[in-house]
Amino acid sequence: MPKPSTRCCIETMRDDPATPIDDYDSPWKAAVTHAFPEFMGFYFPRAAAEIDWARGYDFLDQELAQVVRDGELGRRLLDRLVRVQTRDGDEQWVYVHIEIQGQRDPDFAERLFVYNYRLYDRYRRPVATLALLADASPGWKPRGFRYRRFGCHVAIRFPVAKLMDYRTRLDDLLTGANPFALVTAAHLLTQQTRGNAPDRYAAKWRLARLLYERDWDRQRIIDLFSVIDWMMALPDELQRTLWNELEELERKQHMPYITSVERFGIEKGVQIGEQRGAANLLLRLIERRFGPPDEATRERIRASDPDTLLNWSERILDAKTLDEVLH
């Protein structure tokens, strides 16, 4: 998941101090991981039709982090690199670079251009860049980047899907067969109910009921509910009410999913524990290499996300000063 400089919650709910900040990047990564073929089929159907899904696919997030680590331009929700194979057999492997952008950014198209040629330079294989825009600016839809000098013309043009374009199709989303129809609906309803906890509760409860009505396997329902639950943050009191309603729904429909969903919450707690362990390990490495850090540095490290801690831990191998590690 992203670094602090690029982490973006599209909208925040601070009208009510008891309401947590809406978290978009974590659930989007979970959703893409759990259902990548459906993600492609929903937002980029033409590309999905050219992929040989029977031959599998591989996420290459660590490789992507190495390629773009010094190109942190703008703010985004998520970027992922996936290796796939095509149906036509002409290319053994194609790299799909997915960028989910959560905020309008004048440098967005240039960044995709930079990442695309860096990935090509690394792998010497075709790289397809695809952009999903999750921002709240209806008229912003960059599609490419180009420049021309002295007869040399360099350009990239990439497919774009924009979540706000689905606003008029909310009813279709709520009845759609693709799981990303509900994920898109959850994203839009999260934006629409910002600062209005009762409406947020009603929207989340409706999505949960629709999810339980789908003829999907048990694990998919658990995974998607986890995404919706994570995305549509509620004040504690309303969240407890929602859990009670879900428990009653499961009792009536004889669908015991709630235990697994509760386990997801425990897993989030484990992730927090892992983050703390990584922060403590980095602090020990810093102390051995550069001496005891000051309290401000300690607090900064303890508050950082796992991806940032990993990057800093890698830098410490070659850095000559603490500033080189952290900046």
Rank of each mutant, 00 (worst) to 15 (best):
103 Q>I: 13
109 A>T: 10
74 G>M: 08
101 Q>F: 00
76 R>K: 13
94 V>I: 15
99 E>R: 14
61 D>N: 15
38 E>F: 02
65 A>P: 03
111 R>S: 08
145 F>I: 04
83 R>M: 09
129 T>V: 06
142 P>S: 03
141 K>W: 01
142 P>V: 00
93 W>R: 14
147 Y>T: 07
119 L>P: 07
115 Y>G: 02
31 A>V: 10
97 H>V: 03
82 V>G: 06
67 V>G: 10
92 Q>I: 10
45 P>H: 12
57 Y>N: 11
76 R>E: 14
107 D>F: 15
136 A>E: 04
43 Y>W: 13
49 A>G: 15
57 Y>E: 09
65 A>Q: 14
72 E>K: 10
121 D>K: 15
128 A>E: 04
63 E>L: 09
140 W>Q: 00
59 F>C: 06
149 R>V: 02
53 W>G: 05
95 Y>K: 00
39 F>T: 05
48 A>W: 01
99 E>W: 02
110 E>P: 06
93 W>H: 12
60 L>R: 15
54 A>E: 14
133 L>Y: 03
64 L>N: 10
142 P>L: 03
141 K>T: 02
117 Y>Q: 03
57 Y>S: 12
137 S>A: 13
120 Y>I: 07
117 Y>M: 10
94 V>K: 06
36 F>L: 05
75 R>I: 10
49 A>H: 09
142 P>G: 04
90 D>M: 12
35 A>F: 07
67 V>I: 02
73 L>Y: 09
127 V>C: 05
133 L>P: 00
118 R>S: 13
147 Y>M: 05
27 P>Q: 09
83 R>W: 05
32 V>A: 00
78 L>K: 07
121 D>W: 05
27 P>F: 05
93 W>S: 14
33 T>Y: 08
95 Y>H: 04
109 A>C: 08
114 V>D: 12
135 D>M: 03
148 R>F: 08
32 V>T: 07
121 D>S: 12
67 V>N: 11
98 I>Y: 08
45 P>G: 09
144 G>I: 01
66 Q>S: 13
120 Y>N: 00
50 E>V: 11
26 S>R: 15
114 V>C: 10
136 A>W: 06
74 G>K: 04
72 E>D: 13
110 E>W: 14
103 Q>G: 03
149 R>F: 06
78 L>S: 03
103 Q>E: 15
145 F>T: 00
101 Q>A: 09
